[in-house]
Design a binder for these strands. Structure first.
Lengths: 335, 335
DNA sequence: TAGTATTATGTAAGCGCTTTCATTTATAGC
DNA sequence: GCTATAAATGAAAGCGCTTACATAATACTA
């Protein structure tokens, strides 16, 4: 591989000049620039990004930590991130945290050791304090899908409360008055926020959430099926159930079918997230869209703006979810 | 950040010695090693991987090019790859090729410019010749899910023909004799191979594929629904349809329902790939499992073995698919 | 115990760039 | 035409490591 030195020789200029041409430094005359460009072409020169990084103390790499690389969610996020950085000539190093504290901390440590210029973190298990401490170190980072007051300016998240509100309001508008709720693990902020939105929507109709119609699930399919069974077993009538995510909604759908109920004829089901398979369930799941790709892209922009000084870029920190009506919700029968 | 120099000062040894303890070079006495380790600890020293790379001309990074980062397929693959490399202290740089020639070549160029030690490529649009040319350059690479004779030793792929065979044989075993086929784009090798497997299975029962019961789809949902409509319109009776992938199978399922047919009562449907949502369709899709995560892992091992000389590692190049029976296939009614 | 083979450590030359500072060359002002 | 100023280029010092090669310390042999 040709080096900058060979280019400089062939072009008959100094190293420094070649470097200037590469970095589009203004201080090069047209004539020289052309000579250099031609020499590069001729040698098939490609800069050594490692050497560039060492000399400039910038790796042009951004570390991404997500919980999983598979699954319907993170792929979308990565897509948004990668596209944005690729266009900017930066590259992305990925690591998986598997929602476990030790693995997440490990992953961050790993990315840091890779000299990333910045980090985009989607972490669940690590403590707020850990992140606050991390923020005092060198490497800047953004947090996706997490709100920490002390770090508010580096958080990009969804208005989960609004999403919860929209889901339940939709059901109310369809005439439902007895609405069951299958929540996520309530120690997770987003699970709590979604439920609060649910409560607010009910309050708008002078209703409150009934204790007997609440089930705390685990954001997985089994949580949804267990939840539906528990709800049914409670004996309290309901005409709709909102699930705090699509996995649980899918579980509820399956359980309903197995128990001989028909959705949405017997009761309606709402999901949350609009993951890819929500479209493949039967009936197709009505849900709340989580604009995860856009949020990933925005995280990338935050980095571009804060770390690489691309100041023209606008950053939006809070995203709004919106309703995706499909087939799993119907109007309530008039009682 | 502390440098190796500061460590060496604190420990009272030379640069070289510190470097040796880092690289676990044997030629260091216990006493010195401990002194150095302690100094590192004390300074919170972390080696600068960029400088290491420049000096050793090894970046410890592996470039991954996949078609998409989202979707049910590539995430699994990346999971397998990342886990393997992470454990080996290597890192992964990802880029998306979007199944377009220019973007794929671009992506490869990009990864190359990042000084990757090796590449793992899942490319569809780039020509065989391009890859053969690439193989003559410095950077080694493995090909996932692609067979090129001239590059056989760096191909890791699924036995698609076998998969196609298994799918159809299963249907035959269930008593089906009139089996329709919705293929992928026949210019793609895997689509062709799967179809050949189908033919071989039929031949085993002294049957041949009927022209009228063949439809060339596009591996997408719409291809499946259009395909089913065309098949139905042909007027030829069939009791089962095998789709060359799960997306098309899902499309067929939806179309069947919309046209008033019931699966598997009216006819059975087979998919291929076993992507995550295959479990969420109704009825749950019987399909052929594509061990994509294992294959990703194997690609990573190939790299570890070939590029980083971890010779103890075994590499398997051809993977076998296997049958996943679920609910979309039933026994054929006796005629 | 001298002489040799080993083993442990140090010295210093890069790796391929960026960037500061100094120098040369062109442009302008009078 | 000569100085003052700006623009273009060059020289060279790193960036933080690895790795020959040289040297010093220790162990082994006869």
């Amino acid at each position: 591989m040709a080096t900058i030195y060979q280019v400089s020789e062939l072009a008959g200029v100094s190293l420094a000049t070649v470097s200037r041409v590469m970095n589009n430094n203004v201080r090069v005359s047209e004539a020289t620039r052309n000579k250099v460009l031609q020499a590069m072409e001729q040698l098939g020169y490609r800069p050594n990004s490692i050497a560039q990084s060492l000399a400039s103390s910038r790796s042009n790499s951004i570390g991404i930590l997500v919980s999983e690389l598979h699954g319907p969610f993170y792929g979308e996020m990565l897509t948004g991130i990668e596209a944005e950085f690729r266009a900017a000539g930066k590259h992305v190093i990925i690591a998986a945290g598997h929602s476990e504290r030790a693995t997440e901390e490990d992953g961050i440590e790993f990315l840091l050791s890779r000299n990333c210029d910045a980090l985009i973190l989607h972490v669940e298990a690590v403590s707020d304090q850990y992140l606050i401490d991390l923020s005092k170190k060198q490497t800047p980072f953004v947090l996706l899908n997490r709100q920490i007051t002390a770090l508010a300016d580096r958080c990009i998240s969804l208005d989960n409360e609004l999403g919860g509100y929209l889901a339940t309001r939709y059901l109310l508008e369809q005439g439902h008055r007895h609405i069951a709720y299958i929540a996520g693990p309530m120690w997770k902020t987003d699970a709590r926020d979604r439920f609060h939105g649910h409560q607010r929507a009910l309050a708008g109709y002078q209703l409150t959430a009934e204790e007997a119609l609440f089930f705390e699930g685990d954001f997985r399919e089994t949580g949804g099926s267990k939840g539906l069974q528990a709800l049914l077993a409670s004996g309290r009538p309901f005409s709709a159930v909102v699930c705090a995510n699509d996995e649980m909604a899918s579980g509820a759908l399956t359980a309903a079918r197995e128990l001989g109920y028909e959705v949405p004829a017997d009761f309606s089901v709402m999901g949350f997230d609009n993951v890819n398979f929500a479209y493949y369930t039967y009936p197709k799941l009505s849900t709340i869209d989580y604009p995860v790709s856009a949020m990933g892209q925005m995280a990338a922009r935050w980095v571009l703006q804060q770390v690489y000084q691309q100041s023209s870029i606008e950053v939006q920190q809070i995203f709004d979810p919106h309703l995706i009506p499909r087939d799993s919700v119907a109007e309530a029968a008039v009682t």
